[in-house]
Amino acid sequence: MITKPLHTKLLYGFILLAALLLPLYVPDPYMFQVVIMSLIFAIAVLAMNLIIGFTGQASLAHAAFFGFGAYGVAIMTKAGISFWLALPAAASISALIGLIIGPPALRTRGSYFAIVTLAFGVIVWIVAGNWVQVTGGHNGIFGIPRPTPIPIPFIGAIEFFDQPAQYYLVLVFLLLTLFIMHRIVYSIFGLTFMAVRNNEPLADAVGINTFTTKLISFVIANFFAGLAGGLYAAIIGAVSPSVAAHLLTFNFLIFLILGGMASLAGPVVGAFAIPILMELLQDLGHFRMLFFGVLLVATIIYFPRGFVGAVRQLNDKIAARRQAKS
């Protein structure tokens, strides 16, 4: 509904071009791996953004749903099921579990909802670490097959054994996620999410079933969290309970808040920039999390809409000043 100005469109075009050409200039395989991970995280954080940023419900079970996707793909592909079937199946299972846990959890509000989802996340994490027959316990699952090659007549097949192929695979899924999120957010349907976040009694009074709205948002978010988890399992080739741990949820939250809540660019910026920043700051050891903890507090106090929000504010100010001059 808002048409973007030309310079913004150019900027997005440039970023897309840079993303497509990235394998040409990424410095080393290690950094390439970090970038691939970032894109997977970006999908998960975009999903988190839908429920937290747009709908205002602090779901802290996000890593648990990432974990459902990851373990789902791991178990199914190791049982011989094609990745292309396992991935949507795992994401759907994640969404389905969201549909089951959502109704009781969403009866609570505010920090009650946060703690209930966090408690659910901790349970999933504990079960993942102890249910040895299914999850492999604390060791997790190894030797997960790479995504199944896509056969193409006459040419051969697209395989996913090297980094560039994996990168483009993840990039396609990220773009798909962005496309769907864009459709949702810039629509009357998406406005109802923001209505619930902004003023729940009024939303109720104008005919919005706020409970169902929150549930839909939660289920969509969990579908994409599961999708990201499934991609993670197939690309890394191993999963362990840490993919479902609340610490991963906190990491996602850092990406989301620092990048910028309630925008589509924010989660991508956060999920892309911060893991790379974390790698660059590797020498700092435990100081890194200290640094990011401080940054998280400072951001939520001074820039609640994160980096992207701050840039927009600055942009608006410059525009206003220009207008005042002319």
Binding site: I184, L191, T192, M194, A195, N198, L202, A203, V206, G207
Partner: peptide, 24 residues
Amino acid sequence: SLFDQLRVIDNMLIAYKWRTRLGF
């Protein structure tokens, strides 16, 4: 009581939503 984080038109559209089939 308004949706004060959104624009005027958005407020109106939200209130019109239940009349439509603009679902997922």
